[in-house]
């Protein structure tokens, strides 16, 4: 899980082109939207694409989005519980 969280932080920074943000600046449980990292709805779409591309994990129910994308840890947990074996 720790490795996945570390990878996700790097991938989020790269995919969203977060300027002057380093992986260590993002807390595992830090809120990604609103007052936390300040991401918005376009970033949410980018994150959905990221999960699909890198981890072959699809978000089937949009209403689950806020819960899944609350923090890097919740994203990692979602990936762990939904990844296809050997994908």
């Amino acid at each position: 899980m720790d490795k996945l969280i570390a990878d996700l932080k790097e991938q989020i920074i790269e995919q969203l082109n977060l300027q002057d943000v380093k992986p260590e600046d993002i807390g595992d449980d830090q809120s990604l939207f609103g007052d936390g990292l300040g991401l918005d709805s376009i970033d949410a779409l980018e994150l959905i694409v990221l999960l699909q591309q890198k981890y072959k994990v699809k978000l089937s129910n949009a209403e689950d989005g806020p819960k899944i994308f609350r923090s890097v840890r919740t994203i990692a947990e979602f990936i762990e519980s939904n990844k296809i074996p050997n994908a």
Binding site: Q15, I42, L45, E46, V49, Q52, Q53
Partner: peptide
């Protein structure tokens, strides 16, 4: 490149 699948929105927007 991605065969019209999973396209990131920002560049399109």
């Amino acid at each position: 490149q991605q065969n019209e699948e999973a396209l990131a929105p920002t560049a399109f927007i």
